[in-house]
């Protein structure tokens, strides 16, 4: 006879279930009070608002892991992730004051940025419809001013997205290395 605890233990062995449990536990701790404020206020004080794409990817990863993995496999091969990650790092380095060029300023009157994105979708949209969908969500959020910022860059990238991409790239590179040395 299986008890509820046994059933839970069996479920916990499933990696996707285990991950969801840990994520839910982490989110629950964000409501713990610290110094008169809930913990999430401290996290928010650090991260600020995240892009719509980050939230969509988070909920896809959390709620539909199989679909998320399949989409990553199809549209975000390691090479493209590397390019994206490298681009984000370069963007932040320049925007934070390394040199005289500040790409962030082009997000307030984003005509060049919108043109570049349109060219990218025209060229690559056919084989990256999921990324196109994410970009569309970001652009619509920008058009409706859903975040406090008025800079298009803040709707497209954020440091958390860069960090997640960096981890994904690192894991991808490491798994290839191990495969090649087998």
């Amino acid at each position: 006879m299986t008890t509820p605890m046994t059933r839970l233990a069996v479920l916990y062995r499933e990696p996707d279930i285990r991950r969801r449990i840990w994520v839910l536990l982490f989110m629950a701790t964000l409501w713990l009070p610290l110094g008169g404020l809930p913990l999430w206020r401290y996290v928010y004080g650090f991260t600020g608002e995240l892009t719509p794409a980050t939230w969509i990817l988070f909920f896809a990863w959390f709620g539909f892991p199989d679909l998320f993995r399949r989409w990553c496999y199809l549209e975000l091969p390691l090479k493209r992730r590397l390019w994206l990650f490298g681009g984000m790092v370069l963007f932040y380095v320049l925007a934070l004051g390394s040199g005289s060029f500040d790409p962030y300023t082009y997000g307030y009157q984003p005509w060049i940025l919108l043109t570049l994105l349109s060219v990218w979708v025209a060229r690559w949209g056919r084989i990256a419809a999921g990324l196109t969908l994410l970009l569309s969500m970001d652009l619509m959020a920008f058009g409706f001013h859903l975040l406090r910022t008025d800079n298009l860059w803040d709707y497209l990238v954020d440091p958390i997205l860069m960090l997640a991409l960096g981890i994904s790239v690192f894991r991808g590179v490491m798994s290839r290395r191990f495969k090649s040395t087998d």
Binding site: G125, I127, A129, L133
Partner: peptide
């Protein structure tokens, strides 16, 4: 070529609408 999970044409159409909304929002 790897098949996409989503329809190409519907994605492109949505993107075009999103660009128009973004332009109007500037």
């Amino acid at each position: 070529m790897k098949p996409s999970l989503f329809s190409h044409w519907s994605g492109t159409a949505l993107f075009a609408i999103a660009v128009v909304i973004a332009v109007l929002g500037v």
